[in-house]
Simulated assay, not measured.
Amino acid sequence: MKYINYILIVLGAIVAIYSKAGEEQNQYVLIAGIIILMTGVYRISKTIPSKNSEEEYTEDNEN
């Protein structure tokens, strides 16, 4: 399942770069590439635990 996130990031980057490669930049393809890229980044960021919430939790228990 996590490989889907990486595939989305790579695919989005390739699509965004491809849209800028030609002389006439296709803005719709660029927007689609950015959306795919950001979807992959968002899905990965959901799986990373927040460091701040852990620190606040331990500080509250120490006092």
Rank of each mutant, 00 (worst) to 15 (best):
N26P: 11
L11F: 09
S53W: 11
Y3N: 13
M1H: 08
I31Y: 04
E54N: 11
Q25I: 06
Y18M: 04
I44L: 10
N61K: 13
S50G: 08
L30M: 04
S19H: 03
I34V: 10
I34P: 03
P49C: 00
A32I: 10
V15S: 06
I48S: 01
V15H: 02
A16F: 09
Y6C: 00
S19K: 06
I35V: 07
P49A: 03
Y28M: 11
R43K: 15
Y3E: 05
K20T: 12
I14R: 03
Q25G: 01
M1G: 06
I14K: 14
E23V: 15
I7P: 04
N5R: 02
V41P: 13
Y18V: 02
G22I: 07
S50T: 07
V41M: 12
V29Y: 09
S53Y: 09
Y3R: 02
G40V: 06
N63S: 11
V41E: 01
T39K: 05
K46N: 01
Y6D: 00
A16V: 03
E54A: 13
I4F: 04
I48G: 07
I36C: 10
Y42G: 04
E23Q: 15
D60Y: 08
E62G: 07
Y3D: 01
T58D: 08
L8H: 00
Y3A: 05
N63V: 09
I36P: 12
I44N: 09
M38G: 13
I35T: 11
V10M: 14
E59S: 14
G40T: 00
E24P: 00
P49R: 05
E62L: 10
D60N: 12
A16P: 05
Y6I: 04
E24D: 11
I14H: 05
I34R: 04
A13F: 12
G22M: 05
Y6R: 08
Y18T: 05
I31A: 08
A13R: 04
G33C: 02
L37K: 07
I48A: 10
S19T: 00
G40D: 05
S50Q: 04
L30K: 03
Q25N: 00
L11Y: 06
